[in-house]
Design a binder for these strands. Structure first.
Lengths: 232, 232
DNA sequence: GCCAATTTGTGACCCCGGTCACGTCAAATT
DNA sequence: AATTTGACGTGACCGGGGTCACAAATTGGC
C-alpha cells in the first residue's frame, strides 16, 4: 500500500526531515499489515528495508542453538527497527516478530541511506537513535543481573510503563506483552512470570483490564519492589 | 602525554582518515596509563573523551541496584569505547575498567565529532562500529539464553578466541580474563566458571601457560561443547 | 455465538548453580 | 624475606526456579 509524506512525518525519526526528503522517500515506502506472530524481519538475511512501526507492538527475538527464544527488545508505535542495515551490509542479527496485529511502514534502505548522508542533521538523528538502542540494551542486560527474580520482573514492568503513558502514582500498559514474551526478555520461565503477576495482583499493585490493558494501580509499590527496597 | 598522528593512525577506526584530519585531532589527544582495576570511564557522567585502547584489556561493566557486577563487553587493543558521546550528550551508560594494566589514548569528543561530520566517510566508519557493537551485544545476550551452563562458558571462550588469534584447530587467548570477569559476563558465579575450566583442563581442551596466556589445545572440541553437540 | 487455540493459573518434584567456608598458590608490596 | 592481596580450587549444603502435567479462562476466527 502506498505511503504519503504525511504518514512518514509522523515518525519521530523522520519528522525533522524537510518536506522534499519525505517526498523523495515516499515512493520507496509501503505500508504492510501483519497478523499476530508474523515474522516482520528475518535474522541472518540482509534486510533491504528499515521498519517503522505504525500500530501494534513488535519484539526483537533471537534463538539459542538449542532452540530457546531470547527476547531482546520491544518496539512501540512510532519507533523503528532494522536500522542496522543503514550502517553496513551485514545480515540482520535478530528476528523481529509482531506480538500483536501490527501495521508497519517499510522504507527502502538505500534511499533512506541517501537521505541520511545528504542531510547531515539526519545522520545525527539516526546516530542518536542507534546510541539510544545501545543504552536500552545496556539497561536490559543489567536487569538480568538481578538475582532476585520478582525484582527482575518488576523492573521490566517498570520499563514497559516508561515506554507507555505514566502518571504520578499509577500508569497503564496498552497491549501488554504476554507472560511468555516477558519471560524470554528476562531469561525466566513463563510460569515464574505468572506467579509474580499473581503476587502483584493479590497485593492490588497491578490489575488486568480486559484483553489489551494492564493497569498499574500502585506505581510507588512497584518501584519499591523493582529497586529491591522490599521483597516480594 | 602527547600523541602523534602516527599513533592515532594505528587504530582501525582512525586509520582511514586523511593525514590532515589526524593532525587536527592529535593536539586533542593524550596517552594515559592505567593500573589494573582502574576506572577508565565512569557511568552516569557525560564523558568528554572517546577512549582508544592501545594495550591491555578493558571491560565494560554495569552495576545492579543490589551491587552485583554485570559484565557487558571486553575491549581489545585497537578497539575503542565511550563512542556514544559522539552521538548525543547523554551520560555514559556503563563503567569501563582496566582488567590489566593498560594504556589508552583519549581523544576529545568535540574535535572528533567535527572530523566525523566533515568527513562523511568517517561517519560511515563510526556508524559501522556502533552497529557492530549492537551485533556484539546481541550475541552476548543470546549466550545468556543457554540454560546449559558449561555450554555458556564454552561459547564465551569461543568468542574470546575470535577476538584474538585463531588457527585451524587450536588457538590462544592472551591476557585472559579472570574467572570472575568471565562470570559476570555470563551471569554466573566465579566458582561455576572455575569448575567448568577444571573440566576443560582435565579433558586437555584448554591449558594455562603462565599468567598471561591461555592455550586452546582442542578448538574443535570446544566448539562442540559450545554448540551443545556434546554435554560436559 | 460457538469452537479451537492461546494464554493464564497452580501444584509437585527435583536438579543444579549460588552461597559459604575454607585452603592453596602466585604475585605484588613493604 | 615477610606480608598482603587477590586469583584459583574444592567440598557441602540448600533453596529457588525450571520442568512437567494439568485445569481454567480468555480470546480470536468464522
Amino acid at each position: 500500500m502506498q505511503v504519503t509524506p504525511e504518514l512518514l512525518s509522523r515518525f519521530t525519526l523522520l519528522n525533522p526531515l524537510p518536506r522534499e526528503a519525505l517526498e523523495q522517500l515516499a515512493p520507496h515506502a509501503s505500508l504492510v499489515r501483519y497478523a499476530r506472530r508474523a515474522v516482520v524481519l528475518r535474522a541472518g538475511v540482509r534486510e533491504d528495508n528499515v521498519c517503522f512501526l505504525f500500530e501494534g507492538r513488535l519484539q526483537g527475538v533471537g534463538f539459542t542453538i538449542d532452540g530457546r527464544e531470547v527476547g531482546l527488545y520491544f518496539v512501540e508505535p512510532g519507533d523503528f527497527c532494522g536500522e542496522l542495515a543503514l550502517f553496513d551490509d551485514n545480515p540482520q542479527p535478530e528476528f523481529v516478530i509482531a506480538t500483536t496485529a501490527a501495521s508497519v511502514v517499510f522504507v527502502a534502505r538505500n534511499p533512506l541511506r541517501e537521505v541520511m548522508l545528504q542531510n547531515s542533521s539526519v545522520s545525527n538523528i539516526v546516530g542518536r537513535k542507534l546510541a539510544e538502542r545501545v543504552r536500552q540494551m545496556t539497561v536490559q542486560r543489567t536487569l538480568l543481573g538481578l538475582s532476585n527474580i520478582p525484582q527482575r520482573v518488576c523492573g521490566q514492568l517498570y520499563l514497559l510503563i516508561n515506554e507507555a503513558r505514566r502518571k504520578d502514582d499509577s500508569g497503564e500498559i496498552v497491549n501488554p506483552p504476554t507472560h511468555k514474551e516477558i519471560a524470554i526478555m528476562l531469561n525466566l520461565s513463563r510460569e515464574t512470570v505468572t506467579r509474580v503477576f499473581q503476587a502483584l495482583q493479590s497485593r492490588r499493585i497491578i490489575q488486568r483490564d480486559g484483553p489489551g490493558r494492564l493497569i498499574i494501580a500502585d506505581l510507588a509499590s512497584l518501584r519499591h519492589f523493582a529497586e529491591g527496597e522490599e521483597e516480594l
